[in-house]
Nucleic acid binder design. Sequence first.
RNA 1: GCCGAUGUAGCUCAGUUGGCAGAGCAGCUGAUUUGUAAUCAGCCGGCCGGCGGUUCGAGUCCGUCCAUCGGCUCCA
Length: 645
Amino acid sequence: MINITFPDDSKKQYDKGITGLDIAKSISEGLARNVLAAEVNGEVWDATRPINGDSSVRLLTWDDEEGKATMWHSSAHLMAGAIETLFPGAKFGIGPDIEAGFYYDVDTGDRQITDADLILIENKMKEMVKEKHSFTRRQVSKNEAIDYFTKKGDEYKLELISELEDGDITFYESGNFVDLCRGPHLPNTGYIKAIKLLSIAGAYWRGDEKRKQLTRVYGITFPKAKELEDYLVMLEEAKKRDHRKLGKELEIFTFSQKVGLGLPLWLPKGAELRERLEQFLKKTQKEAGYLPVITPHIGNVELYKTSGHFAKYGTESFQPISTPIPGEQFFLKPMNCPHHCEIYKSKPHSYKDLPLRYAEFGTVYRYEQSGELHGLTRVRGFTQDDAHIFCTPDQVKSEFFGVMDIVMKIFKALDFKDFITQVSLRDPNNKEKYIGTDENWEKAENAILEVAQESGLETVVAYGEAAFYGPKMDFMVRDALGRKWQLGTIQVDYNLPDRFELEYTGSDNEKHRPVMIHRAPFGSMERFVAVLIEHCAGKFPLWLTPVQSIILPISEKYQEYAEKVLFLLTGLNIRAEIDNRNEKTGKKIRDAEMKRIPFMLIVGEKEEADNTISVRKQGEGDLGTFTIESFSDYIENEIKKLTDK
RNA sequence: GCCGAUGUAGCUCAGUUGGCAGAGCAGCUGAUUUGUAAUCAGCCGGCCGGCGGUUCGAGUCCGUCCAUCGGCUCCA
């Protein structure tokens, strides 16, 4: 007999060799039907794998992340089996579960998988599900594994096997499909009740663009048909929040092929909204001791040779602008930091000057690959809410915390609650990608790690995500479809001060090197507004929205009163418009609702007589009758709730 | 940049086996004077993404380029 300990610390005795599934059966039939895998001593196992010693066990269902992962990973195998049947000779790369569903990378040779094949593969999978193939785990020797995939002619699996230790290799067999796999898997394919293959895409083998591109097939599965339906509805809803769609509808921005790829044109409503964001940050920065600077859009190529940007990006950026002087070259600026370094150097500094905080809404240009451009989130010309803090080494931490306060203030004002704080460090196996000494990197990385810990924020560490001159703390927010975008960033840099030979005189009358903190709380105005649009589905916070209220006269008879209301509201700093069209009130309301104008102010005979307005809130309905003053107080109060504190 | 899909009016979309380019919304004009999510009628609007080819004839078939979308790679 062995002792099994459950998550609630209760214990039970079972025969040696019991499985997670058996344990579930001993508890209830219902649980047994829902168990997808079992966590045994912290490792996720097949629910059918025998447990041979005292263990702590957690039974995993669809409600657990690991349960979903098991379902999706098994679904990837199921799909691979279906592809192998339909495309004999197909070779397989990797097929993991992902955040929402799974994919498998396949090489089907000359007979490429197309969109039309998705439904065929899906139908084959549904057939195979009915057969309830079990997943059988089998430990194999490295030689046996090599032998199997050599015979099969699958060089991708052979490459994966070559990197594994003998004695650590397992195969999973399900129906006719055998795969190299660590597991775990479902007891059998019958658990997969609803299947949808979503898309196909090219994906480089092992993420290396120099290697062959395989066909990646994406899909998702569920234990209930209803959940699949709900998921597809959710996807449709998310598409409606897409900033590219809403940005056009709400007249925030547009693009023109004639102007150029990835070069956004801000429309009046968008420009006003952006200005409001900028004003908010400028005020905050002024209070935090930042000094404004302004620098030009181009810089001599020598500037970027000094900074290191030329060596790193010189050939893949917009190419230099020449002048009538032979050999003289200017680059469109891709970063503001080199310019700010030169401002720092414009006069000698004492330790008493520090920290110096130079801030600029600086527009930069980067030649992003055409396939990477994406609405306002990835563009070739954008404006960073940039600032560079020059400080002494012992000021780094307090300055860093100061910047974090600004980032948090912004996220609060815009109601961003679900952000991810990522500490981006250098890739320890690929140091040649970065400039600077190991010593400087260590200092900078330790500073960020310490700040991350002391701040109490939950952070994830990502190796290889640092900038080429220093580590970063990045604040990421998801878009409507769940894709993560980096917004705010704070970077500690010991390297550029070296390259630009920045100095200050310390209290010891010696020269010292300052530390630079690069920071942009929004990141870029373009990306920030894009994510903001998706986040609020176009219903901007009241303090930001282009039109706060629209006056709807019941008929042309009340136009004069509407004008008077507009005059009074404008005097009270409320952004208002009048809908003077010769339309019925219901129509005007519908249009205002769709334009997501927060307040509709209906004025007719009654209101004119009483000097009032009838207020309707977007998405909510009638709020009743207000005087202009009480409405103004109401709005002011709503705005304070977000932007104060 | 790479793989795949898509491209018809300002927007959303129809358009049969190749045979004169359509609808709704928006816009304009007129009628109506309207009370909390679409009043009615008329009108305007198109190099069917560009170029080349096949054909008596191309929105439709073929080639190529461009752009967009989904991924991959990249992201100072």
